[in-house]
Computed example of a mutant assay.
Amino acid sequence: MMGDNIEHVITYLVLWNTFHSPVLVGFQLVSHWLPFLLLSVYAGALAERFDCRRIIQIAQGLFMFVSLCWGVLFLTGTLQLWQACVLLVLHGLAGCLWGPAEQMMLYDFAGREQLPSAVRMNATFRSLGVLFGPVVGSALLLLFGATGGIFANIVFYLPLTLFLTRTSFTGHSREGRMMAKRVSLWQSFRVLGTVRRDRVIMGMLVLAALASVSIGAVLQTAMPAFGTALTPPGVDGELVYGALLFALGIGGVAGGFFLEASGWFKPTVRTAVISSITFGAFAMIFAFTGLLWVAVVALVLTGFSQITATSTGQAIVQLEAPPGQRGRVLGAYSMFGPGMQTFSGVTVGVLGSLLGIPITVIIGGAVLMAGAVLTGLYMRRAPRRAAL
């Protein structure tokens, strides 16, 4: 995740300085999340059929190949718009490919009883990468420039790639042999029929989709606008902007460690619903307040609520998924969660231009809160075994 975010920091800056294209900025968001929307379920089918270690290594290799191509184009000064678009799409495909395989391996490592803990810690360290990726990316830019920094970024993908050469876990050992038959892209989506009949899994998918569409990447995308509005007289605006981003990130990281250390929040439907409600509520407080210290506290609590909702939903989906379809069900969760962030750019662009960014976030938070309540009522009618 650190390598992923370092690449964003370096490439987005170079692309803006090279092309000055607002359309390309929008394409950057779409190209990153659209593969999750369209291909996550199929990536889950691949994780069921093949060795998960190799799938993740292929994804890591694709990440490194993209960074290498960026570096060559920067070095030779031959970067063109179509090349940038192709590399952005390949980067999004790499991110989509490894998610279900990684989650299946967590089940192998931890087993059913310890799975929620494994999912929480995995989410926490992903948040840690997201938090420090921009910091490290900025440092690489300062020390080595865009070309040297993007070449150096290849190193950040190596630890996981090398680790997988030494582990014997494949993502299948607890469930027996791998899926024997080949599943096409179209056939993989049939798992949505299975998901639709399970109210708990369906509820988790709806909560993930609501969070992505209503708030999703909106906060990070719109943070410069909030930084400008919340900067007190005589204070550096860039410092405030950085503090706001750090507050959101540290809320997720600290929240993950707190959840694991305290054991207070169990992976239940109630936890998922309540944390989704508080996610929307704290985002609304942040958008509404004009006080910097209130905004910082609200963002920390927003990050805390977000990681609670995400890790809880992911754990429940893993536990409820039929063993023979676990990879595809996990892919469906990525489709409804990260994949739906494809539309968060529309949320910012359309509503933000009509109503302003703060009102857009307030509306998004209210939609998430109301949707979480309705989804919770829907899941109450689920069989007792699924209530966890």
Rank of each mutant, 00 (worst) to 15 (best):
V66H: 01
P35I: 09
G71W: 00
L68T: 02
A45P: 01
F27W: 12
W70I: 02
V14L: 09
N17K: 14
A43Y: 09
G77A: 01
L87F: 14
T76A: 10
G26P: 12
L29I: 14
G44R: 07
A45K: 06
G95F: 12
M64G: 06
L34N: 05
Q60M: 13
L29V: 15
W82R: 00
T78R: 05
L15G: 00
S21G: 01
L79C: 05
V89K: 03
L39F: 15
P22V: 01
R49H: 10
W70M: 02
L79N: 04
E102S: 15
G44M: 07
G61L: 04
V89M: 13
V23K: 02
Y12E: 13
I58T: 12
L73H: 07
V30N: 06
L87A: 02
L13K: 15
E102N: 13
L37C: 04
L93A: 13
E102M: 11
Y12K: 10
C52L: 04
I56P: 13
L15R: 05
F74V: 01
F36W: 13
H91M: 07
L39H: 06
C52M: 05
L38S: 09
G77Y: 04
L15V: 01
E48C: 11
T78A: 12
V86Q: 01
F74L: 15
A45V: 12
F19Y: 09
F50W: 13
A84E: 02
V25M: 12
M64K: 00
L24Y: 05
A94V: 04
L88C: 03
C69D: 02
L87R: 01
T18N: 04
L34H: 06
R49L: 13
F63L: 11
F50V: 07
P22H: 01
L62M: 13
L90C: 07
R49P: 04
D51I: 05
L93D: 06
H20L: 06
H91W: 08
G92V: 07
V41T: 14
F50Y: 15
G26W: 04
Q83I: 09
L73V: 04
V89W: 13
G92L: 10
P22R: 00
I58D: 04
F50K: 08
G61E: 03
S67N: 14
Q60L: 13
V86M: 10
T18M: 12
L90V: 01
Q57Y: 00
L79W: 05
W98E: 12
G99I: 14
G26A: 08
D51V: 03
W33C: 11
G44W: 08
G44S: 08
F63K: 13
F36N: 14
G92W: 09
A59W: 08
F27V: 15
A84M: 07
I55W: 06
L90G: 00
P100A: 10
T76K: 02
C69P: 00
L13F: 12
Y42A: 03
I58C: 11
H32R: 15
C96V: 07
V89Q: 08
N17P: 02
A47N: 01
L34V: 12
V89D: 11
L75E: 14
L97G: 01
L97W: 10
H32F: 10
F27E: 14
N17F: 08
V30G: 10
I55K: 08
H32G: 06
